[in-house]
Computed example of a mutant assay.
Amino acid sequence: MPEFASAALIVNARSRRGRKLFKRACTAMSGLPFPVDAHAVKNPKELEATLKRALDKRPDLVVLGGGDGTISGLVDHLVGRGVVLGVLPLGTANSFSRTLGIPIDVEGAVDVIRHGRRRRIDLGMIDGDYFANCAAMGISPQIAETVPHGLKKVLGRVGYLGWAAYQFVHFEPFTLIIDDGSGEKRMRVTEVRISNGPYHGGTWLVDDARVDSGEIVVQAVVGNYKLRLVRNWAASVIGSDVRHHDTVTFRGKSVRIATEPPLPISIDGELLAHTPVTAHIAAGIIDVMVPA
């Protein structure tokens, strides 16, 4: 285990579940051989400011608790600070944690901090914005961008899934224009994933993506029929290689991406950009705690 003099814990505690898991995390971390400056942040808009205040105390380790979006939204502030990242997976998909082999229960994740090792990894970038795991264009961002405010809160998961079904019926394939350095290519697609790791939405989808490969991987689900996207998702769940016949993969240190029409981009679950963009890899830019 690396020797740390101090650590900071920043948890997205917006939900009641998040606040409960924060208490569990504090209990689990109470036995660590160094002090932990712990913060439960109920308002997500205050996460960045809370992290910056914690960094002013110069901790050796910063543990971020939340989903993939929380980690991607805060990781920019850790780059170049000489701190090690710890991950406390408190989201729904927890794709970044799955990629790193970190257990998705609180006690298991804290055990990685206690007994794990440091690993140097890459981060993806959309233009100048770092992200941890995966960005996407297609039906998923369309659902997130158009869902009526409060629908999921009022009707729960059933309401959200109903809206997703409605959007899926009305969703149309789009044109991807991509250049990985070998010349511009155009194709009709139903989904595009820009990946620094193999997991997307908690499911293994992008075989070629690795957090230490030194390359960004762009996977396109091709074809004019939405059935291809359904088959691609289903095949990934059951582990069938059928999905490989429905995808085209590009990779490189920098890939230029545009779409017709311009589309929103979901970066680890948060709508943060629109095409056209350039996807980069920031190779070996941060240390993270992983299982020994």
Rank of each mutant, 00 (worst) to 15 (best):
F4C: 11
A5W: 00
A5L: 05
A7F: 01
A13F: 06
S15I: 05
R17P: 01
R19W: 10
L21R: 14
K23N: 08
C26S: 08
T27N: 10
G31W: 03
L32A: 04
A38K: 02
A38S: 12
P44C: 07
K45W: 07
E46P: 05
L47G: 08
L47A: 10
E48H: 06
T50I: 06
T50S: 15
K52Q: 15
R53H: 06
A54M: 02
A54E: 02
K57N: 09
P59W: 04
D60W: 01
L61S: 00
V62Y: 05
L64M: 09
G66F: 09
G66E: 11
G67V: 03
G67T: 04
D68K: 08
G80K: 12
V83W: 05
V84P: 02
G86S: 08
L88S: 11
L90C: 00
G91F: 04
T92P: 08
A93H: 03
A93C: 07
N94S: 08
T99M: 06
L100W: 01
I102M: 00
D105P: 06
D105S: 10
G108F: 03
D111L: 11
V112T: 14
I113Y: 01
G116L: 00
R117A: 05
R118Y: 08
R119Y: 04
L123S: 09
I126F: 09
Y130L: 12
F131N: 13
A132T: 15
A135Y: 12
A135K: 13
A135Q: 13
G138H: 12
Q142T: 15
V147S: 09
P148H: 02
H149W: 05
V154F: 08
G156N: 03
G156T: 01
A164E: 07
A164C: 08
A165F: 11
Q167M: 13
F168A: 15
H170K: 15
F171R: 03
E172C: 04
E172Y: 04
E172M: 07
F174A: 10
T175E: 15
G181V: 13
G183W: 03
K185I: 12
R186W: 09
V189P: 08
V192S: 07
I194C: 05
S195M: 12
N196D: 01
N196C: 01
Y199D: 10
Y199W: 14
G202Q: 03
D208G: 15
R210H: 15
G214F: 11
I216M: 11
V217P: 07
K226M: 08
L227E: 12
L229E: 11
V230R: 06
V230T: 12
V230I: 15
I238R: 14
G239N: 03
V242P: 04
V242Y: 14
H244W: 12
T247E: 14
T247Q: 13
T249M: 13
R256D: 08
A258E: 01
T259K: 09
S266W: 06
S266R: 06
D268R: 05
G269L: 05
E270I: 12
A273G: 09
A273W: 07
H274D: 12
V277P: 11
T278D: 03
A279G: 13
G284Q: 09
G284N: 14
V288K: 01
M289I: 00
V290P: 02
V290R: 01
P291W: 10
A292W: 09
A292N: 14
